[in-house]
């Protein structure tokens, strides 16, 4: 091999290294594509299909009227279980409202049919738990306090207070 050829090869090699470095440097200042998840939470849309919750009235009393529309349209059998009775004023009282969140497929069908805008979805997606039983959420877990419910309604363009 002639020395001239070697020089050319060295030169072209250097040029290639320079080009490679230029590519690397061009990416130096740009914003990262990934998120450092547990520290930085993702920016989710208001329509996000997350954990189900029950909104309450502004004074933290039940908004649900026990019509069972959500249970009827749920694609998973017996996922939402509701037991209710009516008190002396014919007002509905919810005795039991459980959602097996471990079997929920987060489709959002129930939120669409609710006549009083009670069952809704939060943007909460960290739902892991230690046992299967703990994933069955009852009314206590599902009810959102009055203030938080109002805030939810404001964020989603509904009327703020419900009496």
């Amino acid at each position: 091999m002639s020395p001239v050829g070697n020089e050319n090869r060295v030169l072209s090699g250097l040029v290639e290294i320079g080009r490679g470095l230029a590519t690397v440097m061009s990416h130096f200042g740009r914003e990262p594509v990934t998120l450092e998840y547990p520290e930085v939470m993702p920016d989710l849309s208001t329509r996000f299909h997350g954990r189900l919750c029950l909104l309450t009235k502004s004074d933290s009393t039940d908004l649900c009227i026990g019509c069972k529309a959500c249970a009827r349209v749920c694609p998973c059998d017996d996922l939402i279980q509701i037991e209710m009775h009516r008190d002396e004023n014919k007002k509905p009282v919810i005795d039991r409202f459980t959602i097996d969140i471990g079997r929920c497929i987060f489709c959002g069908n129930c939120t669409e049919v609710c006549p009083v805008d009670c069952i809704k979805m939060l943007s909460d997606f960290e739902l892991a738990d230690y046992s299967r039983e703990a994933l069955v959420l009852d009314k206590f877990d599902l009810n959102l306090p009055g203030e938080a419910s109002d805030q939810w309604r404001v964020e989603h363009g509904l009327e703020k207070t419900v009496k």
Partner: peptide, 12 residues
Amino acid sequence: FEDISGARMMYN
């Protein structure tokens, strides 16, 4: 898709 439907793959 998440903005429009609320889910990334299972849109419904």
